[in-house]
Design a protein around this nucleic acid. Structure first.
Lengths: 104, 104
DNA sequence: TGACATACATCGGATTTCGATGTATACTCT
DNA sequence: AGAGTATACATCGAAATCCGATGTATGTCA
């Protein structure tokens, strides 16, 4: 189950701890959410490309075991975007929880 | 800002307090979220039709001021679905918040 | 009379995600 | 040696969700 729209926040957050690459980002999100958050590669790579296009991340290649690994790193704008995304996420969750009210 | 996927939960929840109709549901969600949750009519009506198709709501018409107003009411299955949707929502929010961790 | 709120609806387009598929390397097990 | 699995990138078509525009119709208020 992946509510559409939260992936950019998750990626940006992952990169705020240091540069990383697609495969690792996905694995860590899945692991750290105990499998609840599970984005496929067909979802992840386009999302990374979107973030790059927005100027929120920049990339560089590192040759590992004879092949290129594409690292992503937050830009200044990306740091600000993360902050915004966090705020939006919190506002949204609070709004939904507020509307849902008491009942469980 | 509307994270895609939360509208069914919101509608089901609104109907758990009694039958209602599209226009009113949308207005109440918006009002009770202080404008944060704002679904357009082109979003709402298809969503209501989907819920009806799923068998989670049933409808009946009431003539008001010379025109039909379409009321929606939760079915038994709808009550169960609401319960499931609540659980999924909570699990998802907890997962994201868990991954995001401490920093704010 | 014209604007606005109410109330239903549909349509095309944009965005996001999934599943399938493709490429390539390296390690492990048999 | 060969098969299977993990790593690591990518693209493509399909499905789902949502928005904005548009259309219909009635009632109210200035």
């Amino acid at each position: 189950m992946n509510v559409k729209g939260s992936l950019p926040l998750l990626i940006l957050d992952a990169l705020s701890k240091g540069a990383s690459y697609g495969y690792l980002i996905a694995r860590e999100i899945k692991m750290r959410s105990a499998g609840v958050l599970d984005f496929q590669e067909g979802t992840l790579y386009p999302a990374l490309h979107r973030l790059e296009k927005e100027g929120w991340v920049e990339t560089y290649n590192v040759k590992v075991d004879g092949r290129d690994r594409r690292y992503y790193r937050l830009t200044e704008a990306g740091v600000r975007a993360l902050s915004d995304e966090r705020r939006s996420w919190r506002a949204y969750v609070n709004a939904v929880d507020g509307v849902l009210g008491d009942a469980g």
